[in-house]
Amino acid sequence: MDPVIAGPPDADRELPAAVVEIARIHDATPVWRNEAGGITLRGHGVHIKWSPIGGPDLRREQERLIWAAPFTTVPEPLEHRSDGTGEWLVTRTVAGRSAVDPDWTLRASTAVPAIGRGLRELHEALPVDDCPFRWDLDLRLGEIDAGLGHRDPDDWGQEHRHLDFPAARRLLADPPPVDGPVVCHGDACAPNTLLDEDGTPVAHVDLGRLGTGDRWADLAIASLSCTWNYGPGFEELLVESYGVDWDPRRIAYYRLLWDLGP
């Protein structure tokens, strides 16, 4: 599967006027741009996420951060605002560095197990029976059928591009049994785990999709993201570090679901 188009912002690419103004107000510097055109800025003790119209719903993320905060370490929301171009969410900076910080990409044998352990800790900390948010199959398949996903195979990972949408959707009609219902992160890619200097997982970020679901929905993407960020050979190490055996059927199913989903 190809990597998502996300990473440090291009210095030669012009920033939206709203982002320039946000940066001025908060004395902040852009540090990340995602595939939807959203930009993350870092200021003094705060991070600011800006999302264009039609991009990720930051009010949705704010609600999930507030709910998760009593159980695990996540950024504290401080302010949410919007204008005619998009919306932004200001959060208090939490300790730790992204697991794809350049230093950690050179120490993948330490970073990858930490991501696996951190994901297990997150799943065990968040109370699934009390979670008001969903990320289960019924919800996600319903979004796909409503036309909210990626219907064009050119948007999918390489291993799925031989399929057309009807064929891919038929494969999703035969899901594996749920194995370990948890509160999923919803975007458990490597950059969204923060590590301390010793490689201990200390926090998670980007929780806009957080909700109840099968733990393999997170594991499938967390393990896949290791190939994007560290190269081949680390997928099974992540799953092993989480504490379960590699499950080819669930991995394949949830990666296809990820490709077709919004």
Rank of each mutant, 00 (worst) to 15 (best):
P176E: 06
L194R: 01
A11G: 02
H26D: 06
I22C: 09
F234V: 00
H47M: 13
I221T: 13
P248G: 07
L207H: 05
L210G: 01
R161P: 12
A6V: 08
A11V: 14
G243A: 08
H47A: 14
L119W: 04
V239E: 04
A217F: 11
Y242D: 11
V90D: 08
F71Q: 02
D179G: 02
T72C: 04
R97G: 00
E197S: 13
H47Y: 15
F234L: 07
D27T: 12
L78G: 12
V182L: 07
E63Q: 15
A6E: 14
E236V: 04
Y242F: 12
T212I: 06
Y254G: 07
H162Y: 10
D196T: 09
H80A: 09
P70V: 08
E240D: 15
A173E: 15
R42P: 00
I221R: 02
L139R: 13
E79L: 15
Y230E: 03
I25M: 03
L122D: 02
P176S: 05
R170V: 14
N229E: 06
D10V: 01
P16F: 08
F133P: 01
Q62V: 10
P153T: 12
D218V: 01
I144E: 11
I66S: 02
D27Q: 13
W135L: 03
W67Y: 11
E240T: 15
T40L: 15
P8K: 06
R59I: 09
S109M: 01
G186T: 04
V94P: 06
T200M: 11
R255S: 12
G55P: 08
L172P: 09
A28W: 02
S241R: 00
A222F: 12
D136I: 10
L89E: 12
V202Q: 10
W50L: 07
L141Y: 00
E61R: 10
E21H: 10
L256F: 02
S109G: 05
E61P: 14
G7Q: 02
P201V: 10
L257R: 07
C131I: 07
A203Y: 07
G37W: 08
A114R: 02
D2T: 06
G180Q: 00
S98H: 03
R250N: 01
E143H: 14
P232R: 00
N229R: 10
G199W: 03
R33W: 06
A114L: 02
